[in-house]
């Protein structure tokens, strides 16, 4: 099979049932390998990242920021309650954030709970080892996949929305269809719909580069080597805040992504990400 992307010439007929639904070659090897690598690395990055956040559960804007300075976000505990404060708004988060019960039944005053962190008991040195080791794999994967997408024309052919697709009327129509859980079927399911394209482009072109570059911006040695990073993000503490926000948006993407896989037919979807072959939903 020539490697030219799904929906172009990748259609294969099911040999057993010639009249059966069309199966298309949807995900090329690079996409599949990168996807499953990310399933592992992204969870390790997120969970070890939460341990690192727990070392100083306050976020600031600007070049500097420490305990005497104003934090725009803070997770803490006071009066036997856990809380999350964003700006002036404070939410009681006892049991989940700030103050919670660990696996042994002991109450712990710490930002993110044990089940969300690597390692499960606070250890900054170990968390940094996990985070900074898998960061290489994570970042290399993003770079290679971005380059592959560019040169294989995966980006322009499959991911970037067309002018017609980003017309407001078209987007509103797609949102309405999604809200009714009506997903593209048959021929229309050959290609990503505009909401998929926007999400994948947002992740590949915005969130992932942002999370890697803000991570580098927090490195004092990188600030010397590449001082423009501080200019781009407005300081080390701003970079730390953006790093956290980008990671939060990635979690949000994962939640929606998994929900969509479930709603669109998980067996077919997951199989397509393993074998590459996707059965077009019947009209």
């Amino acid at each position: 099979m020539t490697d030219t992307g799904f929906g172009v010439d990748g259609t294969v007929q099911d040999d057993v049932k010639p009249a059966g639904p069309a199966v298309v070659y949807r995900h090329r090897l690079a996409t599949r390998v990168w996807h499953w690598t990310n399933v592992v690395t992204l969870f390790i990055m997120l969970m070890s990242g939460l341990t690192i956040f727990n070392a100083h559960p306050r976020l600031y804007w600007g070049q500097y920021g420490a305990n005497h300075d104003h934090a725009w976000l803070q997770i803490g505990s006071a009066d036997n309650r856990g809380y999350l404060r964003v700006g002036e708004a404070t939410v009681d988060t006892t049991g989940v954030l700030g103050r919670w019960t660990n696996a042994s039944g002991n109450t712990v005053n710490r930002a993110f709970p044990y089940w969300a962190t690597i390692p499960s008991s606070y250890n900054l040195a170990v968390a940094r080892h996990w985070h900074l080791f898998f960061a290489w794999i994570f970042a290399a994967g993003i770079l290679l996949y971005a380059l592959w997408s560019l040169f294989s024309r995966h980006l322009t052919r499959d991911l970037l929305p067309t002018r017609k697709e980003i017309a407001p009327a078209h987007i509103i129509h797609d949102v309405a269809q999604h809200a009714r859980l009506r997903f593209p079927k048959g021929e229309a399911a050959r290609r990503y719909n505009v909401l998929q394209k926007l999400s994948y482009c947002g992740v590949l072109l915005v969130l992932l580069p942002a999370v890697v570059l803000t991570g580098l911006t927090m490195s004092p040695a990188m600030n010397a080597a590449w001082p423009f990073l501080l200019e781009i993000f407005g300081g080390r503490q701003s970079a730390r805040s953006i790093h956290f926000i980008a990671a939060t948006l990635l979690v949000l993407f994962i939640l929606v992504h998994v929900a969509m896989v479930v709603l669109a037919g998980p067996i077919n979807e997951i199989r397509s990400m393993i074998t590459g072959r996707y059965r077009l939903p019947k009209e």
């Binding site: 690192i52 100083h56 420490a66 900054l124 927090m218 004092p220 080390r236």
Partner: peptide
């Protein structure tokens, strides 16, 4: 210069 604690805070 900026002093960066391993815990995440910075002071100049």
């Amino acid at each position: 210069t900026r002093h960066d604690c391993v815990e995440g805070w910075s002071a100049i």
